[in-house]
Amino acid sequence: MVRQRVEGFFDLCTGCRICELVCSQKKLGMYKPRYAAIEIELKSEGMAAIPSLCVQCEDPHCMKSCIYGAIEKDEKMGIVRIIREKCTGCEMCIKACPINGAIKIDPASNKALKCDICDGDPACVKFCPTEAVKLIKIGGQ
């Protein structure tokens, strides 16, 4: 079984938020970093910038807590996806997810958004100037 995810490395992250910008543009059609599927959090008076985003769980809490069936797991690609048509913006997935900022609800559409690794070619990885986000593959051929 394939698992892959975009992983953030705080030791390399400069907190520039380029990842949030390109992510929001790809997913929401405009620069709206607040609702991007990746979030940079500053800690210790700014001494660390910590990128956080969905880890594409093997057994996703968000999927199991969605009563609308709006979250599905693509076993072939190892991606946990939100089916926008089915999403009601009820926020139960956000409540169930332990990762800071991994799921957002853009008020303009009232639909949940999370990382789907851009189907294998993540924009954040492409644009990060310090390689602080990387696409990691685990297992599979």
């Binding site: 400069t14 520039c16 938020r17 008076e45 001494m47 910038a49």
Partner: peptide, 28 residues
């Protein structure tokens, strides 16, 4: 300790850290 980038800046010329010794040690 680390490099700090302003918004959308790939240069990240700024640095941040902590004074290690002397009367001001521990200051970020």
């Amino acid at each position: 300790l680390r490099e700090y980038g302003c918004f959308a800046c790939p240069l990240h010329c700024s640095k941040i850290g902590m004074i290690k010794k002397g009367p001001y040690k521990g200051t970020v």
